[in-house]
Design a protein around this nucleic acid. Structure first.
Lengths: 194, 194
DNA sequence: CCCGCGATCTTGGCATCGACTAGTTGGTGC
DNA sequence: GCACCAACTAGTCGATGCCAAGATCGCGGG
């Protein structure tokens, strides 16, 4: 168990990622600086590059990690019980609000390496889980076209999460908590009509 | 009509904004540089600051312009005829795809000055037009809660536009053009059920 | 035991950027 | 024709991303 004083850091990779999450969460990805991450981790300014190559590498790693976290949340829901599309959406929104830095980077292709094999694999996994969740919904509630229903569900959750994060829905939502509002909106659109 | 050679540029403000739109569209807002914008406009590296104060000023101006363009598109639809919520959504998506640079900046509060009075006014206008569009839909198609229906409609359109822009829907949508897919998704969620 | 070798980290340097300051140009109103 | 002010230029500073070269550590083979 190394102290913080050895020449080798021990787990610089994780330290840099955690620092990046902190910076992005509080100041946005625009003010992310490799040198600042190095300072926060207590290493020299070029050390992070040995783990991530460059700035885009850090953000790509964050995007991959984000997809893993989101995929795990999806898997939770799908394993737990019968198809609950709404619950999948709630998890999506919750993930976006609890892990804003990851969410931010995941959907900004200009920030990361979109052709990274690990990233593509992680995207593949979450996309597949989402599709599976939609496919498991009875067709009389989501229409015949599974792809279209997936697009609709994903768009609703993604749009809600993005707008909420950007503080665009505050006036419309009143003081209700985000998950409750989202549940109501999803019920309005996907639930049966009277 | 001044040639390009005078000491005074003539309309540097517009030239900088146009250059910014070009850069953001092709390379993303991350690689935007005031000095590059100045070079593209053929002026010295500090000239743009006299019109926009700093980088955030350029992006704030772009966000305002984006809200104006979107608001005009909304007003078109609302003036034209009876309430057509779907058409409002189609315009939203079309705007996002035709003016990606504006759209990008509008919903990234970390890039601009979110407390700018002009920006707040422009946001107010588009938000009001959207709410009006939703309110004009018969309540039996959108439920009783106007705010909730606005959130749902906005989320759907915003999420669809964002995901499409990020190239996340390509596999799901096949080769169908975006507006057609969006119309189908909106019909699925907001239209009557059989 | 120690030696060498790769992984990890440091140091130094270069081009570029954002922002600040001071100075220059030229049109407009008086 | 003159004074003033907005528009623009020129020079500078600290910080950044990335590259190259060197230092340190730790692990396994002899």
């Amino acid at each position: 168990m190394p102290g913080a004083r050895s020449y080798h850091h021990g787990d610089l990779r994780r330290a840099v990622l955690d620092a990046a999450i902190d910076v992005i969460t509080t100041e946005g990805p625009g003010s992310l600086s490799l040198r600042d991450l190095a300072r926060r981790a207590g290493v020299s300014h070029a050390a992070p590059a040995h783990h991530f190559t460059d700035k885009a590498g850090v953000l790509t790693a964050l995007a991959v990690e984000g997809h893993e976290l989101l995929g795990d949340a999806f898997a939770d829901v799908l394993d737990a019980g019968p198809a609950q599309l709404q619950e999948l959406g709630v998890r999506y929104v919750r993930f976006a609000l609890q892990h804003p830095a990851h969410f931010e980077v995941m959907f900004r292709p200009d920030l990361h390496r979109r052709d990274s094999p690990e990233l593509l694999a992680a995207q593949e996994r979450t996309g597949g889980l989402l599709r599976a969740g939609v496919a498991a919904v009875p067709a009389d509630r989501r229409g015949q076209d599974t792809e279209l229903a997936t697009i609709a569900a994903w768009s609703l959750a993604h749009g809600f999460a993005s707008l909420w994060r950007g503080d665009n829905l505050g006036r419309l939502a009143g003081r209700r908590p985000p998950e409750e509002v989202f549940r109501a909106a999803a019920e309005l659109l996907f639930g049966q009509r009277p």
